[in-house]
Amino acid sequence: MRRDSAAFLAPAGVVLALVALLPMLLVVWLSLEQRSPLLGAARFIGFDNYLRLFGDVRFWNAFGNTVYFTAVSVALEILLGLAIALLLRHAFRGRALMYSVVLLPWAIPTVVSARLWEWMYNADYGVLNYLLGTSINWLGSPAWALNAAILMDVWKATPFVALLLLAGLQTIPRELYQAAAIDGASPWTMFRRITVPLLAPLILVVLIFRTIDAFRVFDAIYVLTGGGPANSTETLSIYAYKLLFQTLEFGYGSALAVSVLSCVGLLTIVYVRLLRRSGK
């Protein structure tokens, strides 16, 4: 039996090793080299790229932007997603329609919705300034641009969070609430003592997905601002793209990519620990 399963898993394992593990190890190897097609032969330089990274102001700026983007957008997505899930749990007329409407942002490819938002954010004739009666330079001012990107990400990812949490809510037995009601518990107490604890494992799973996704954010920002103005929206992935695809610094760019990977890895480990603890 065990041998059978190994045989069935083998093809998938081989494919994963070829398309995921091997390139990843290659990137780690590249990050130890000074390598750029413009400089001729590659040279092994050990951890020099990483040392350079620590002293790179632009890296720390990108790191700060990425952490801010991730923290704010994921927090908002979880809160809003939970609120929407709680609303959708109750049967009401037009619920099916609501499901589809809520899902729409998630269904649109990011590049397309980023283009839509770019138009809405247009400071000259954009609909957002028109509706708000403001003249905010959404994408062109360093104070607003990253927040504008966060708003778009929240709009896009909240449906995903809402849907997963809704599925979680539906697994909580009704009897628990009925019993609590008989005992005279207020809705707030029920939410705190029943909903939150039973939903916690799922919230953690959603957190893992969203954090990893947000930490690697690239496409939305690439379309909205390209990292500007004044590098105020340059995230780690945007910086890595500029190093790897524009200045062709393959060694240094790989070091940056590996550091992003390590951050995501660390976050995942922390979450999984939390998940185990909450499971006990």
Binding site: L38, R58, G140, S141, P142, G228, P229, A230, N231, S232, E234, K242, Q246, T247, L248
Partner: peptide
């Protein structure tokens, strides 16, 4: 210069900072 693309990335960010008034 052979390093124009790198120089340009630096200039893009700093000129942008001057134009937006961050610096």
């Amino acid at each position: 210069t052979p390093h124009y693309v790198r120089l340009s990335q630096i200039l893009q960010a700093e000129f942008s900072a001057a134009v937006t008034g961050v610096k």
